[in-house]
């Protein structure tokens, strides 16, 4: 579903990604872990077609980036630590706007479905700026799945959430993944990543230094694996 070969990204003289290779199979939930500055967000922005690769090959859902970016975007849902929502619009107005941008048919029915999925149908007519951080993040997930994407990208989705909100987000993420979507998530929260993902890749200094599936991880804990991968 996602194929990345020898991906390099430079900003001026600074090289952030130094030849990343990654293959994600359909239905896989990959947690991309690494320290600050490792290039996780840059990598996800390239997959999301928000940033151009300097070198290398990137394919998402069978389409090549950046040449077929519009087709990639039609199959992609992105959630970051920012909500990507308009505070002066209500929850349903936000979803209606994004629904129009994705040309979704039967849009009012879809809005109701998505709001029910993220547990916000009772707040559908409230302005998003009155929402708590956790509610905004759930609505952000609703926005990201409104067009039923095959691939979901989550960039630090737990940033700024308290324990209750994080637990609720766990539920929403599980429901998103349970529908057979391919998911790539960056996170610093190893416990949550271990709970959700089926594979763990460590990105450090611009390359993927280690990768392990959940089944193989059973011999050791994720924090120990992470620590060892960074030490190498």
């Amino acid at each position: 579903m996602i194929t990345v070969k020898k991906l390099v990204k430079r900003f001026g003289m600074k090289t952030v990604l130094r030849g990343v290779d990654l293959e994600v199979q359909p239905g896989e939930f990959v947690a991309l872990l690494g320290p600050n500055g490792a290039g996780k967000t840059t990598f996800l922005r390239i997959l999301a077609s928000l940033s151009r690769p300097s070198l290398g090959e990137v394919r998402v859902a069978g389409y090549r980036l950046p040449g077929e970016a519009a087709a990639v975007r039609a199959n992609l849902g992105v959630v970051s630590h920012l909500p990507l929502l308009y505070g002066d619009l209500t929850a349903e107005e936000n979803l209606r706007f994004y629904g129009r941008m994705y040309n979704i048919s039967n849009i009012e029915f879809r809005i109701s479905e998505v709001l029910e999925m993220v547990g916000l149908e009772n707040r559908r007519r409230d302005l998003v700026r009155t929402f708590s951080r956790g509610m905004q993040q759930r609505l952000a997930i609703g926005r990201a799945v409104i067009h039923d994407p095959e691939v979901m990208l989550f960039d630090e989705p737990y940033t700024g959430l308290d324990q209750d909100a994080s637990s609720m987000l766990d539920e929403v993420l599980r429901s998103v993944a349970a529908q057979g979507r391919t998911v790539v998530m960056t996170s610093h929260d190893l416990a949550r990543a271990e709970d959700l993902a089926t594979r763990f890749d460590i990105l450090s200094r611009g390359i993927i230094t280690a990768s392990v599936t959940r089944n193989n991880l059973k011999k050791t804990s994720l924090p120990a694996f992470y620590k060892q991968a960074l030490a190498n």
Partner: peptide, 21 residues
């Protein structure tokens, strides 16, 4: 915070159309 339990594993009814003009 809305404490209503989340409905999990729902199948969203999507009818995708081509990109908007």
């Amino acid at each position: 915070m809305n404490d209503r339990p989340l409905t999990i594993n729902q199948t969203l009814s999507i009818v995708r159309r081509p990109s908007p003009n």
